[in-house]
Amino acid sequence: MSVTEQTVHPTADVHPIDHLLRADRLPHILCPGCGIGIVIHSYAQAIAESGMPENDHVCVSGIGCSGRAAGYVNVDSYHTTHGRALPFALGIAVHKPDLNVTVISGDGDLTAIGGNHLIHAARRNANLNVICINNFNYGMTGGQVGPTTPIGARGSTAPRGTTERPFNLPYLAKATGAVFVARWTILHVREFQQAILRSMQKKGFCFIEVLAPCPTSFGRANKIGDGLHEMEIYRERCRIEHGASNFEDLDIDLIDDKKSITVGNFVDIEREAFLS
């Protein structure tokens, strides 16, 4: 190529990963700056890199913005009732142990409405991969405070800031018996993809918490202007610590900008999986 020759960048209509997505439904309904699209993208990329046939993958989701994920992936997918994604997925995993069942759902669906299902699926070590998209609030219904909203953060049901202690999800998953526990943000997209791939290879209950911006609800209530602003918070404050030594330190404080957010692959152990 001569130096004077100018590179022409082409326009495109399809994305190389479109065959794993229901591309006719794109652009999706999610807001600009929302992180759920990146999670769907990462999941599709992980399916492509997993080396397993597409037919061996199943995606189950609950209710909420994150519950839309099942509607956009072009593998067998189920959009279940509120909080019941895990028991539904457990049924699939028990009946067809060879399938790779992934639950993509939100923090409200998995840890509030479906909280009991989460701890018992982890206790039994059900053969599931759970991707919990944590956006710190109930985004779809208007920004109500949820079980992961950090102390002091505002929401439509806590206009002066919540006083309730939030869940520390990696600690919860580890304590209840998950064999793989990780936390990443959508900015750590390569590491997050590797964590999904690892959970696809592992038998047992794998739990990945992924932090994602919700500029429309959580951001607006907490003076986080847009998705990019929250991404910058992740970039400045995230500290990677694989195999974290003290799980009590994994609490997230999004408001106090001096405190770091610990991310990484925290647990990777072997334990016999439930009925598989």
Binding site: T7, H9, P10, T11, A12, D13, V14, H15, L26, P27, C31, P32, G33, L187, D226, G227, L228, M231
Partner: peptide, 20 residues
């Protein structure tokens, strides 16, 4: 060296690609 392909009709102007 890379060639950039943009599917303009899908974009929602979140600025992630431009910024990062």
């Amino acid at each position: 060296r890379g060639l950039v392909h943009v599917i303009a009709e899908r974009c929602k102007e979140c600025n992630f690609c431009i910024n990062y």
